[in-house]
Design a binder for these strands. Structure first.
Length: 580
RNA sequence: GCCGGUGUAGCUCAGCGGUAGAGCGGCUCUCUCGUAAAGAGCAGGUCACAGGUUCGAAUCCUGUCACCGGCUCCA
């Protein structure tokens, strides 16, 4: 590590220590103002910190000012943070009136040191590290509150969480708040409305249902055709399965046992009915099992742009990121054990190529066996190892998360950030032990013996809804030319240029460009402003000069006025830009 | 589903017990215009929905629904 990198490391550690201390200062302030609170935990997070409290009521924005004022006082009092270690018995005694702290202490492994930090009259169970004194907490701000289950478990009591942040200087805090504001402008829900991409009618149509407007539909279609082309190159075969399938199949697949609360079941009578598909897998299992399969056929890569519906819980819907109906670029790969690694590597490379095309930053996770799961240990071990080795070959370094896999097998997930830095799972590649067994899937190997195929489940875009939401925020609405729903907007200067405009539109269309004519009776300045706000890549101004010289005046949304050129020149330029 | 906040015109918001407002957008007319907002006029709202309190409710209270920030869950 060079010196500069070390310096950055030191700074971020110092910032982390300061924020951690800020969370203690906040807890101290809350305890002074409301002595009856019980303390949960108070860690640092990405851009700040939080602290959880059990409190008779909720904290309101009105409380923020009082808490902040008390925090300032504590900082001024400049308490040193003193660390000390207690035995388990002493620690439990010390926290007699703090049930959550006692629970944490009881759960600490026996060899772990039980440390506390004291600042003035306030002492907290804490691993540290901290700043030397409360005075080192410089510029801070309480940001928001929310409910949060104790230990993240919905069966546990709900605590009141207060979020805050702290920085070394006022400028840094201001810059952070500004960044938050800028990020809000990229919010796909706002941009989606402003750009006329999609609509939701939560009151009329129910929550979590997406209506694609014509331009959003065009965007989605462009993306989907691209996905389809790549699938073809990778030798996937596309299938289409029904949206509504009899409940006896959902019983067989295990969905009724494991996923019923998320399913929309129609026409249920005497325990029988039809279920709307929440996943495409079972349909694909039927297709694989429809005839005797030979080892020579494998791998079979079965793809479907399958629209699925899941009855998500009320408070969880979020724009395009979390909806009840969405379309996956789903695929199931049935292969022989000796083909497994090669198939996984191919999917990983394929995924990386797609995510890189958009310049996303992503994080990968390898998720291992959860407590409630099926399949024997050796199979899990083999599958995890296959994923791990394939990741090495593909040059991906996933973070291992034990217990976070699916109940039917381990997986590698790719998460992409939205404008506000929240991670959303998009791509996923999963190994599935469950379905081949449930559907009794077999192929005949070279020794004429039946064997179970290995099943890989994968989605790269994940869902087009979520992926497009991420794209909107990533580009802030300025889609690259190949994706832009309207690629060129034609702006006639006066009514007499309408006809030329129509001719130009026809010409562009036949060259594979998506044009639109802005024929309203408005000034050219106003039309340009509107087109700029819509982030249309090319604005084509048509007036007397252009009509006379058979040219078009070209303005690019990012580069401004490019002067006039012939349509041939324009098309060449656009082709070049599309290829980027 | 849970905790909190918020629902007023297509959008952004003001009004917060006494006759529903503005800007943008839309429509009509005038203008026929040269690279980020021409001018004038008009239309548009059971103030989310349902109850309640009150002489009187957009405004206060309760419930439902939805949205927003989190938690949980997930593509």
């Amino acid at each position: 590590m060079n010196e500069r990198a070390e310096q950055i490391m030191d700074d971020s550690e110092a910032l982390d220590r300061m924020r951690h201390t800020a969370s203690h200062v906040m807890a101290q302030a809350v305890c002074r103002l409301f002595p009856e609170v019980k303390l949960g935990i108070g860690p640092t997070i990405q851009d700040g910190f939080y602290y959880d409290f059990l409190f008779g009521r909720e904290f309101s924005r009105d409380d923020f000012a009082a808490i902040e004022a008390e925090m300032k006082r504590i900082i001024k009092e400049s308490f040193p943070l003193e660390r000390f270690v207690l035995s388990r018995e002493d620690a439990l005694e010390r926290t007699a009136d703090q049930p959550f702290k006692r629970e944490l202490i009881r759960d600490l492994p026996p060899e772990e040191e039980i440390s506390f930090y004291r600042q003035g009259e306030f002492t907290d169970l804490c691993r540290g590290p901290h700043a030397a004194t409360t005075r080192e907490v410089k510029v801070f701000r309480i940001l928001s509150t929310s409910g949060a289950y104790w230990r993240g478990d919905e069966k546990q009591p709900m605590l009141q969480r207060i979020y805050g942040t702290a920085f070394f200087t006022k400028g840094e805090l201001a810059a952070y708040l500004k960044r938050l504001k800028e990020a809000e402008k990229r919010d796909h829900r706002k941009l989606g409305a402003r750009l006329g991409l999609f609509e939701t009618f939560p009151e009329e149509a129910g929550s979590g249902m997406v209506f694609w407007l014509e331009e959003g539909a065009k965007l989605r279609e462009t993306l989907l055709s691209w996905a389809r082309r790549i699938n073809e190159q990778e030798e996937y075969k596309e299938v289409i399965t029904p949206h509504l399938i009899h409940t006896k199949m959902w019983e067989k697949s295990g969905h009724l046992a494991n996923f019923k609360s998320h399913m929309f079941i129609a026409m249920e009578e005497d325990g029988e009915g039809m279920g709307v598909k929440p996943m495409n897998c079972p349909g694909h299992m039927l297709l694989f099992g429809r005839k005797r399969r030979s080892y020579r056929e494998l791998p079979i890569r079965m793809a479907e742009f399958g629209t699925v519906y899941r009855n998500e819980k009320g408070g969880t819907m979020h724009g395009l990121f979390r909806v009840r109906g969405f379309t996956q670029d789903d695929a199931h790969i049935f292969c022989r054990p000796d083909q497994l690694q090669g198939e996984i590597v191919a999917v990983l490379n394929h995924t990386r190529m797609i995510l890189e095309r958009f310049g996303f930053k992503w994080r990968t996770f390898l998720k291992g066996r959860p407590e409630k799961s099926i399949g024997d240990d050796s199979a899990w071990e083999r599958a995890e190892k296959a994923l791990e080795e394939a990741a090495v070959v593909a040059g991906i370094e996933p973070v291992f998360v034990p217990k976070d896999g699916a109940f039917y097998g381990p997986k590698i997930d790719f998460e992409i950030e939205d404008a506000l830095g929240r991670d959303w799972q998009c791509s996923t590649i999963q190994i599935d032990f469950n379905l081949p067994e449930r559907f009794n899937l077999k192929y005949v190997n070279e020794h004429d013996v039946e064997e179970a195929p290995v099943l890989i489940h994968r989605a790269i875009f994940g869902s087009f809804e979520r992926f497009i939401g991420i794209l909107i925020e990533h580009y802030g609405g300025s889609f690259p030319l190949w994706l832009a729903p309207v690629q060129a907007i034609i702006l006639p200067i006066a009514d007499r240029h309408q006809e030329t405009a129509v001719a130009l539109a026809t010409h562009l269309e036949s060259a594979g460009i998506r044009p639109k004519i802005e024929g309203r009776n408005e000034t050219i300045g106003k039309k340009i402003r509107a087109a700029e706000i819509q982030r249309v890549p090319y604005m084509l101004v048509l007036g007397d000069r252009e009509a006379e010289n058979a040219t078009v005046s070209v303005r690019h949304r990012d580069e401004g006025d490019l002067g006039s050129m012939t349509t041939t020149e324009l098309l060449a330029r656009m082709e070049a830009e599309k290829a980027v």
